[in-house]
Amino acid sequence: MSIYQALAFMALAGLAAYVQTLTGFAFGLILMGAVGLTSIMPLQDAAVVTSVLTLVNASIMISKGWSEVLKKPLMLVLLSSLPSLVIGYLLIEHLAANGVVFLRILLGGIIIVSSLQLVMPPRREERQASDRSFVGFGVISGLMSGLFSTSGPPLVYHFYRQPLSLVAIRETLVAIFGVNALVRLGVVMADGTFPDPHYWPALFAAVPVMAGTQLARRLPPPISAKYLRFIVFILLCASGASLALPALPAALELIRS
């Protein structure tokens, strides 16, 4: 990784943290989408770095709000997401070794579908969902976390439908993201697949991540939240399509052969 690539990654990470703080999710989507488009590093290594940065971002955001965390939903989601996280991790390792084009299509599709939440926010229900639903969304979230360290979209959709305090929802989600990132890093360490030292400069992106988080709190953009979410939606859709569409011909060729 050259110094220019490291600086570009740091800038993207800072921007992703800024957007995450303003919109409630999209950190991993923006960062992984940008890596997929620029090929700064392999996607599986980028997912590891994203886990580290997610942990940093979560630590900052949760430092003053732990008392607001919803304990029961937290435990339901974590207990159901951790096994599927391991499955997702094994899947990305398999695809990275045997079908990179399918990996790009999968990431692109996840980015596009997940970005719809920005323009189609979930409606709040009158009654809280069942424990089983939290478990189900936890499984999906864990799978996405294992694949690309992007556990946010399914949980954001589910939690924001609940008749609960918005502060409690936000802090609970941040806690889940942080724990999932920590567990994913543990799985990587146990498997001995931590990124090559060549990519370690990307970890310095923790500094712009902290800066982006604080900047979003103190200096939000002078536009409405609705307009901001629409802009992010367009950018995510464009990056998802740019990842998936060029890989489709090669994927079809592999299937035929």
Rank of each mutant, 00 (worst) to 15 (best):
P153E: 13
L245F: 13
F27N: 01
I62C: 08
I234C: 15
S151C: 06
I40R: 06
R161P: 00
I3D: 12
L245Y: 03
L7R: 01
L173P: 02
Y227A: 14
Y227S: 15
A190L: 14
A216Q: 04
L82K: 01
T193Y: 03
Q5N: 09
V86S: 11
V119Q: 09
P249K: 05
A168T: 11
F134L: 05
G178V: 02
H198K: 08
G152Q: 07
A58F: 03
G152C: 02
S151N: 13
R127M: 12
V113N: 08
A211W: 12
S63T: 11
V119I: 15
P83W: 14
L78Q: 09
I111F: 00
L182N: 06
A247S: 07
Q44A: 09
P220K: 02
L82H: 05
L22I: 10
V52M: 02
A211L: 12
I60P: 04
E93L: 15
E68V: 09
K226A: 15
A225I: 03
D131Q: 08
I40M: 15
S242M: 13
L248Y: 01
I62P: 03
I40T: 12
G109Q: 03
L15Y: 13
H158Y: 12
I30S: 04
F159M: 12
P121M: 08
L43Q: 04
G88M: 05
S257P: 02
Y157P: 01
F204W: 07
A11M: 14
L95G: 10
T150P: 03
M120Q: 11
V207H: 14
R161M: 13
V19E: 14
I87G: 15
K72P: 04
S63N: 14
A47D: 13
V188Y: 08
G138M: 08
L78R: 03
L215F: 13
S145G: 13
L203E: 00
I169M: 11
K72E: 06
R124H: 11
S145I: 05
I140H: 10
L228H: 10
G24Q: 07
